[in-house]
Design a protein around this nucleic acid. Sequence first.
RNA 1: GGCGCCAUGGUCAAGUGGUUAAGACUCCGCCCUUUCAAGGCGGCAACACGGGUUCGAGUCCCGUUGGCGCUACCA
Length: 501
Amino acid sequence: MADDPVRGTVRVRMAPSPTGPIHIGNVHTAMFNWLFARQRGGVFILRFEDTDRARSEARWEDVIYSELQWLGMDWDEAPDRGGPHGPYRQTERLDTYRQWARRLLDVGAAYECYCTVEELESERQAAQQEGRAYQYTRKCRDLTPEQRERRRAEGRVPAIRFAIPNDHVVIVDDMVRGRIEYPTSAIGDPIIVRPNGMPLYNFAVVVDDLTMHVTHVLRGEGHISNTPLQVLIYEALGEPTPSFGHFGHVTCGSGAKFSKRHGEGYIGFYREMGILPEAMFNYLALLAWTPGDDREILTREEILAEFDINRVTAAPSQFDLQKLLWINGHHIRRLPHAELVTRCLPYLQKAGLVAADPDEAAMGLVKGVVALERPRIETLEQITGATEYFFRDEIGYTPKAEKLLFGPGVIDGLREVRRRLAALPEWSIVALERAGQQLLDDTGLQAKAAYQPIRAAVTGRVASPPLFDTLFWIGRDRAISRLDLVVSGRELPKAAGAGPR
RNA sequence: GGCGCCAUGGUCAAGUGGUUAAGACUCCGCCCUUUCAAGGCGGCAACACGGGUUCGAGUCCCGUUGGCGCUACCA
């Protein structure tokens, strides 16, 4: 179903203000818009609401493009690629707003208001002192042409106000929350165009959405209260009203609602820590939506095939890093191994563990150790901490490892281990396993008692992948020199980070 | 203050008048196991409150409370 039965092709949009790094919540609604469009063969539009010139910057537009790209979402019409209904930046559409404002004036649905900011402010304060809710008095609504002329002569430049119809209830059939009723008595006549010609948000969105033929306005719940006014403007203009749907907000961190600053609400924060885009996509899809059964780990394709706006919940939701990490772990484990290696490599290089242009041997080691850690890591970045002892000559020892190495009889045991490892005819996992078994047979020790000290001595920690794989990839020379150090009784270097292992 | 939206465990959530109120994350325990993970099994933990409607209410209605939003010459 490529087309909406009554309106033709589905057209949706994301309309952010480029005033800071895009918030997770906006990415979430962008994603639902994208899913809705792609599922129906529709069009996904990107438009920037940059009328707040002081705070809008081009670099934030780039951030938005790259975050969408990272998540695998594409767009059809936008400033960067044009489209039939552009331009796609509000500051480049001023003429259009002027034309539509003229039309509102002509049909008598809007009027010029000559009140000054100071006058309005004092009215507002008066209302506040009397304890009544302020609403514009509408005193410019019925100005005669002569009165308007007189004010102009005083040098006043008018703003344009929209005339809200009296005693009328606007009904919106919201796609995610059903019928919403809103009395017009709660809305004062709003200014829609400033004296300097700059349109205000609620007017500009309507003009943009109608001239871009947007069929479904899917956005955050913060816009619910704006919707009745917007519907009134569509009606006054005699233009068809799009369908509306309002998603609950996604909040991040402890209560802080709109922290657009760096940190938890910024999606790049998660990318940098090694969250896979497919995991982020998966997690975000599960916020306010479920496939209708118990599945939690889903691919982008599965989500695209099964997303259903009728199953989207209206309640707000809290972003939970723990669950994202769990989902990320699953996606890491389901990645083809070569692909996982490719994605881990930059993290290892950034940590200085692997050269910028690793040779074949280095890549062999990377592949080997990534395979060992694959079931253990939850983020790509964790690969560095988890595998550094495979790459460095010098390692640090955690308190737990140190304590274990000081246990009774441990040093003597390790001397014997060192001797056997040095004598091994072949350094392979099979040979190491055989030697390990031999050690148990000869000493009568339990595996745990025999192996943990070895692990601690060669890795500096008490937890690692299976011992013989670990030894194999550490290599004979490093393993032996680490054993020598431990056996020597010299003080062991401390592990840098307070890593638990 | 006025108006609007929202309300199931700590978190994400299933549920569309009749269920012992699913499932997942987190946490705890057990199994597996050379350690740590992964995996398997099990456990703790919820319908915000008060009234209705109904034979019967987490589900419908009203009110209260709480959270959020709008109430701008912000978006």
